Simulated assay, not measured.
Amino acid sequence: MSKDLVFYTNPQSRGGIVHWMLEELGVPYKIEYLEYGSSMKSPEYLAINPMGKVPAIRHGDVVITETAAICAYLADVFPEAGLKPEGDALGPYYRWLFFVAGPFEAAVGLRACNVNLNAEQEMQLGCGRLERVTDVLADAVGGRQYIAGERFSAADVYVGAHIGWGMLFGTLEKRPEFVEYWRELQNRPANRRSEELAEKAMSKQA
């Protein structure tokens, strides 16, 4: 039996990554747009995500928060979409999906807050300096069309979106490896559809 799939988001949030993922799945879903500081902090939504943040999804009675977790969950429960690799590609799939969700995002966030880690802080936090995680990520995507194996996967949605947004907003260097990796991903029809829907939502909010 199919379950209703509800997507909670704001068009100016990380929800854009989940929106792209949902469009790649090609399954029906409902969008609930929330506003910062109002409906996002309402008792109704806090019952779904006590952090009062987006994105989140509700799939039947199951609630999932955290963007990388949502992408991994959707790839798992909709296997017909082929967004979760098999065999030897499964290791790199999980590795890079959560590398970007963990060390990379932490390092980018710290630098955005003007925090430059010393050697002792690097050990305590575990994420490493932005320069180091950038080198590692560039190495991972360099010369590759997809981050895990020979097929597009949910990890490419997550990793690709962070690389694309990072270069757009200046939080990530426009290295040749990143530019080449993002070139084809950004033009995937599902990504373009999600961007168009987000633009329409923003125009209605304006």
Results as ranks from 00 to 15, higher is better:
Ser42Asp: 01
Tyr73Arg: 05
Thr171Cys: 06
Pro189Lys: 05
Ala101Gly: 06
Ala198Met: 02
Lys200Asn: 06
Gly170Asn: 05
Val100Thr: 06
Cys113Gln: 15
Pro11Leu: 05
Leu117Trp: 02
Ser153Lys: 01
Leu46Phe: 03
Ala198His: 02
Ala107His: 07
Lys3Val: 14
Gly170His: 04
Leu25Ile: 06
Arg183Ile: 08
Val77Pro: 10
Arg129Asp: 03
Ala155Gln: 03
Gly142Arg: 07
Trp20Val: 09
Glu196Asn: 04
Val115His: 07
Lys174Pro: 13
Arg129Asn: 06
Gly60Val: 11
Ala119Thr: 01
Ile48Arg: 03
Tyr33Met: 07
Ala140Pro: 05
Ile163Glu: 08
Val62Thr: 14
Gly128Leu: 02
Asp139Asn: 09
Ile147Phe: 04
Gln186Met: 09
Ile70Pro: 11
Pro85Tyr: 06
Gln124Pro: 00
Ser39Met: 01
Phe99Arg: 03
Gly160Gln: 10
Val100Gln: 06
Ala201Lys: 10
Gln186Thr: 13
Glu24Gly: 05
Leu185Gly: 03
Gly15Leu: 12
Ala140Ser: 04
Phe178Thr: 12
Leu22Tyr: 07
Ala155Asp: 06
Ile163Trp: 13
Gly142Ser: 15
Asn116Thr: 13
Glu120Ser: 00
Glu80Trp: 13
Gly15Met: 12
Glu32Gly: 00
Phe178Arg: 08
Pro43His: 05
Tyr36Ser: 03
Lys3Gly: 06
Glu105Asp: 14
Gly82Tyr: 13
Ala68His: 09
Leu97Ala: 11
Gly15Glu: 09
Leu97Gly: 12
Asn10Val: 00
Met167Arg: 13
Leu22Val: 03
Val27Thr: 05
Ala81Arg: 14
Cys127Gly: 01
Leu46Lys: 14
His19Leu: 08
Pro43Val: 00
Phe152Gly: 02
Val77Met: 09
Gly102Ser: 12
